[in-house]
């Protein structure tokens, strides 16, 4: 059964609807899936999530969450989804414990009743349960917000950029928590601007300027990248990048960590490229075959 069905969903803002935030998007998410919406700021991720959580009305198209229509049956959806917005939106002047109790009460349940679901996350902040939410560190706020979004045992969980601005260690920990929740059978939709988090999802949708560029498993998406990518490095990386982009056999070259990823045109010759780069004065040259990543795919789709 599909947990989320999105069909030609659109949303525009402005007096003349001139700002098109979401443009005829369609995709489906299966029950129990961890689905990532990957895209930069301004791609339309938040507008999409707000429509799916019934906080914003679509202009056109339709969508259903757990079998309920986001417009007609919005009240049902609000009972069964959890939503963690990108901006911290708990009560800053209530304590950790009070926030959690408040959200449980609103949904007619108790913390005790669903404690097993949040236990792994909540124990980490329980030592600070009398502290005001506004006085927590970023990492602890995030854990409290997740606990509050889960306390009514939602069937679908929407997390809007939970890891933005968070350091690499806390990001890793957060994804571990999501893996645990997935094992409890909760469908999770998570948005992120970090391309390297794509690999942690079952399936992903790449989003840019209101459109979904591609949907699939991370392997399907990178598998659709047909051109050869060479990883190239030398003693002068900035000059090397200019030299690569000036070469006729190179489709595109861009920095990628230690190497420059160099997308080659068909029928290229590695030796010719090496000679060309040496002639240009590059030393300590390394040229090796490289597998495309989701970020490579994203950039290729963006430029099409």
């Amino acid at each position: 059964m599909q947990s989320v069905i999105v069909n030609n969903l659109s949303k525009s803002y402005g007096k003349k609807k001139e700002i098109k935030a979401v443009k005829e998007i369609s995709f489906e998410v299966s029950k129990g899936e961890l689905f990532g919406i990957i895209g930069p700021d301004g791609a339309g991720k938040t507008s999409l999530f707000r429509m799916l959580t019934t906080l914003l009305l679509p202009d056109a198209g339709n969508a259903a969450v757990d079998g309920s229509d986001v417009v007609k049956n919005y009240k049902d959806i609000r009972k069964k989804v959890g939503y963690m917005p990108g901006r911290f939106s708990l009560y800053q002047d209530l304590s950790v414990e009070e926030n959690l109790n408040f959200f449980a009460t609103i949904f007619n349940t108790t913390v005790q009743h669903n404690y097993d679901l949040i236990k792994d996350i909540y124990v980490q902040i329980e030592p600070f349960k009398t502290r005001k939410a506004g006085k927590l560190s970023g990492g602890m706020k995030q854990k409290l917000a997740l606990s509050c979004a889960l306390i009514h045992r939602p069937v679908v969980l929407f997390l809007d950029e939970p890891t933005t601005g968070v350091d690499a260690v806390s990001r890793k920990e957060f994804w571990e928590m999501l893996k645990h929740l997935k094992q409890q059978g909760i469908t999770i939709l998570v948005s992120t601007p970090y391309m390297d988090e794509a690999g942690l999802c079952d399936r992903i949708g790449l989003m840019q300027q209101g459109k979904i560029l591609s949907v699939g498993t991370p392997a399907e998406i990178t598998g659709a990248f047909k051109e050869t990518i060479l990883g190239v490095k030398s003693n002068n990386m900035y000059q090397l990048l200019k030299d690569l982009n000036a070469n006729d056999e190179v489709e595109d070259a861009y920095s990628f960590g230690e190497y420059h990823h160099t997308v080659m045109k068909p029928n290229f010759n590695k030796e010719t490229l090496q000679q060309y780069l040496e002639q240009k004065g590059n030393k300590e040259l390394v040229i090796q075959n490289t597998q495309p990543t989701v970020e490579d795919s994203f950039m290729q789709l963006m430029k099409q």
Partner: peptide, 15 residues
């Protein structure tokens, strides 16, 4: 943190 949230192409142009 000058490049937070931007798309991968713009991030590289920034660099």
């Amino acid at each position: 943190e000058p490049t937070g949230g931007v798309d991968p192409v713009t991030r590289r142009e920034f660099w």
